[in-house]
Nucleic acid binder design. Structure first.
Length: 493
RNA sequence: GAGCCGUUAGCUCAGGAUGGUAGAGCACCUGCCUUUUAAGCAGGGAGUCGCGCGUUCGAGUCGCGCACGGCUCACCA
């Protein structure tokens, strides 16, 4: 083998040599009797009996230690990692030489042989025969430090998953969370449904959409910013408990808490109100935590957080009053609210409406301190065009958001089901759109028409699966819980 | 969009204030080694120092611009 500098070149030469020797480096199949985890288990449970079990298993070579006429290696499959032991006198001189010359870290190998325990106590396969299952042409990340370069980890997530056990666990947990949510809702009679991602009018949230074009129809579509208005059409249609887990798209800045595409669940239940949705929320989160993590206490960024119901219910009015001294039930117009902010010398951006100003006040002075699970109740009407008015509370709606670990996790309300009022709300939004608010809700005549056929009282809830996963896996950035987070393409690629 | 920081071998990182032949560990190649496990020992190969322009006799190092990334802020139900 000529010496070349490039490891890929060297491996390509091995590939050629394999084929020249009549060995297919990418065979179609290899039948295993055991996964790696099963092999370990079968040995443990048979230890002490006369015959040691023979297994046939496969995996990726993660380390090799050559000691002359015998070698050790570790192989890894999806279930775990096991050591293999290859001896020249066991497999023959030629086969042993073949192993040394042709196999590299990263290659997939199939092995067969009895299990034993080494002098240091590690369960090991004593290889009697082995086979190349797939040749790797590029070297793996470093075995000790793994892969730490954040950009490489995101752009080549497969390497991150290979090298970093914690990352693997995070994404397995994410999948289990979603399964547990489905189980929870299915058991309670909710139907999982699918609604359009390409929508002629976007809505259900305040956000700027992505626009795309349909060639055959020659018209623009928006990628949905939420599922809300379609799911509520299903409520009108008599599907009284529905949910959807799916991707939403918002054309906004990227941060540790925002990815332009993210996964949200939305749940709607006829004849429920927002109090009912609070009970559903705390029940769901604590049940899922218990199923996935085995506990309802999580640790997030150094905070111990208890998800056991009931969670704190805190009206926004009281929260703001406690944090700033301002009573929004007294200062019910923008002018007097601003005056209060000025008098108290609060550092705050100026917002164009009463509701937005309150929201700003809340975000600045209350939200960062909401570590234990908290429902914040009763939001300003002008930032909630789809929620039902709260009786005897002018300017407020029956809406809550919930916060855990300082993260805004979800949003819910008693759904507005009065079609005439819905029209007025949209007209208010249209006014804000005229005044330059790019996130104001667009008028949706088709939605109003649907509601005019009669919509039962309904509770609706939405929350982010990504942020839930962040909390459950103690990750501070949303990119750590999305397999392939949005990144700018490198120029030239 | 703004500020700060980062980008050196396949990977993890030194070097950079003070400009003068580009370094380490892992990985790779050669040799020795039949219970090792971050195996060991001896030897060896490997670089567009992110890209471009400039200053200089000379730039990984200094200056300017650009790209990508991270954090903070802005934006964001």
């Amino acid at each position: 083998m000529p010496e070349t500098s490039d490891q890929r070149e060297q491996r390509l030469e091995k590939l050629t040599a394999l084929r020249a020797a009549g060995v297919e480096p990418y065979p179609a199949r290899f039948s295993c009797t055991h996964s790696v985890a099963q092999a370990l288990h079968v040995f443990t449970s048979s230890e002490g009996s006369a015959e040691s079990p023979v297994v046939r298993t496969a995996g990726r070579i993660m380390s090799i230690r050559v000691m002359g006429k015998a070698s050790f290696a570790h192989i890894m499959d999806g279930s775990g990692r096991i050591q293999i032991y290859i001896r020249q006198d066991e497999v023959g001189e030629q086969a042993y030489e073949f192993f040394l010359k042709m196999f590299d870290l990263g290659d997939f190998i199939g092995v067969e042989g009895p299990l034993f325990r080494t002098r240091t106590g590690e369960i090991t396969i004593r290889v009697q025969s082995f086979q190349m299952l797939a040749k790797a042409l590029r070297p793996l990340p470093e075995k000790w430090h793994g892969l730490t370069d954040v950009e490489l980890r995101y752009r080549q997530r497969y390497l991150d998953l290979l090298a970093n056990e914690r990352v693997r666990r995070t994404f397995i947990t994410r999948t289990r969370i979603v399964s547990a949510i489905r189980r929870f809702l299915d058991e309670r009679g909710f139907l999982e449904v699918e609604t359009p991602i390409l929508q002629p009018i976007y809505g259900g949230a305040a956000a700027r959409p992505f626009v795309t074009h349909h060639n055959a129809l020659d018209c623009d579509f928006y990628l949905r910013i939420s599922d809300e208005l379609y799911l509520k059409r299903l409520i009108i249609g008599g599907l009284e408990r529905v949910y959807e887990i799916g991707r939403d798209f918002r054309n906004e800045g990227i941060s540790t808490k925002h990815n332009p595409e993210f996964t949200q669940i939305e749940v709607y239940q006829a004849y429920a109100d927002y109090h009912e949705m609070m009970r559903l929320t705390e029940e769901l989160w604590s049940t899922v935590a218990h199923e996935v993590l085995g506990t309802t206490t999580i640790t997030y960024q150094g905070h111990e957080i208890n998800l056991t119901p009931p969670w704190r219910r805190w009206p926004m009015r009281e929260a703001i009053k406690e944090a700033t001294g301002i009573d929004i039930a007294i200062h019910t117009d923008l002018e007097s609210l601003r005056q209060q902010i000025q008098e108290r010398r609060l550092e705050l951006d100026i917002k164009p409406t009463w509701g937005k100003q309150i929201e700003e006040l809340f975000k600045e002075y209350v939200e960062p301190n909401l570590i234990q699970p908290t429902f914040i109740l009763d939001y300003p009407l002008d930032i909630s065009p789809l929620a039902k008015k709260k009786p005897d509370a002018p300017g407020l709606v029956e809406r809550f958001e919930f916060f855990i670990g300082g993260l805004e996790c979800g949003n819910a309300f008693s759904e507005l089901n009065d079609p005439l009022e819905q029209r007025e709300r949209f007209e208010m939004q249209w006014q804000q759109l005229q005044e330059g608010d790019a996130e104001a809700h667009p008028m949706d005549e088709d939605w109003i028409r649907a509601m005019e056929y009669g919509m039962p009282p309904t509770g609706g809830l939405g929350f982010g699966i990504d942020r839930m996963t962040m909390l459950f896996t103690d990750n501070p950035s949303i990119r750590e819980v999305i397999l392939f987070p949005a990144l700018k393409p490198k120029s030239g690629e």
